[in-house]
Simulated assay, not measured.
Amino acid sequence: MTLKTLSYPASLIKNPLKSLLSSVLTTTIILTGFTSVAAKPGNQISTAKATVSPAASKWKLFTAPDGGFTVLMPGNPKVTSQTQKTFMGEINLQVFVAQPPKQEVAYVVAFNDFPDSYGKMANPDEVLKNAQAMALKTTQSNLISERSIRSSNGQPGREIEYINRGGKITKSRMYFAEGRLYQVMVITTKRQQKYLVKSIAGYLNSFNVVLRK
């Protein structure tokens, strides 16, 4: 799939984090072939492991090729790797997409590593808040809900839900760990969402960040 060439206005050059996130989020949306939406302040939670249903036999544990995360997926995901050039250097984006047949839904995990120097000095809350803002802006979506979360091993995260102009609903959990931004998303339609409540919750709860250090 051909990626759009991204340009960086002066306002983004002044804020390198927003520039990087704009590049990463736009690339993720292009690669998955979907557009999304997002959220309102809520209570902080801690995510836990869960069993996905229905059709549990079709779901299996998937481990990222570099061992950076594990998650339950409905079958083997399609994997796409894309190097995106930014003014701070190249960012490698990995996207994993699983789409069950005969369902209007996509289960997506995407991650990117920020340049070492920036990843070490970045504030996790700033990264997550800017990622949320850029997701809404890039997909032209309206926020439904938001809350602060933590991964099962204590990494800072954010959960958002949003809807775009076409009516597609995205529920996303983002985590920032060791200079890497993870995005765990379920993209579906209003019609399909009501039948997938348990599957969506189970999928999101099954995601685990595996620390590399």
Rank of each mutant, 00 (worst) to 15 (best):
K49M: 10
T70H: 03
S36K: 02
S46F: 12
A48D: 15
A38W: 02
F62D: 11
A64D: 13
P65D: 06
T63L: 08
P54F: 11
K49N: 15
L72Y: 04
F62E: 07
T63F: 02
G42K: 04
N43S: 14
W59H: 02
W59K: 05
W59I: 09
Q44V: 10
N43P: 03
N43Q: 09
S46R: 06
T70D: 05
W59P: 11
V52K: 05
L61A: 09
L72W: 06
A39L: 05
T51L: 11
T51M: 15
A55G: 09
A39W: 01
L72V: 14
G42A: 09
A64G: 02
K60R: 11
A38F: 00
K58I: 01
T47H: 06
Q44M: 11
K40W: 03
K60Q: 11
S53W: 13
V71M: 05
D66V: 04
T63P: 07
K49F: 11
V71E: 03
N43V: 09
S46V: 10
G68T: 15
A50T: 02
K58E: 14
A38T: 02
V71T: 07
G42S: 08
P65G: 10
N43F: 12
G42R: 09
T63I: 11
I45S: 01
N43T: 14
L61R: 14
A56W: 04
L72G: 06
A50M: 07
N43W: 09
V37N: 00
D66C: 07
K58Q: 13
K49W: 13
N43K: 06
T70I: 14
K40N: 12
G68P: 05
A55F: 07
S36V: 07
P54M: 04
A55H: 12
K60D: 10
T63V: 14
A64Q: 08
A56C: 01
A56F: 05
S36A: 10
S57R: 10
W59S: 03
G67R: 04
A56G: 02
A56S: 10
K49E: 13
A48G: 02
T70S: 05
I45M: 05
P54E: 15
I45Y: 08
A55W: 14
V37F: 03
I45T: 08
S57E: 15
K40Y: 01
S36M: 08
A38Q: 05
A55E: 10
W59G: 00
T47M: 11
P54G: 13
T51G: 12
T51Q: 15
W59A: 03
F69V: 06
I45C: 07
G42W: 00
K40E: 02
F62W: 02
Q44Y: 08
T51S: 15
A55L: 08
G68R: 05
A39K: 00
P41Q: 07
G67D: 11
V52M: 01
A50Q: 14
Q44G: 13
A38Y: 00
D66Q: 14
S53K: 03
G68E: 06
F62N: 01
K49P: 04
G68F: 07
P41C: 05
W59R: 01
V71A: 12
P41N: 01
A38I: 01
T51D: 15
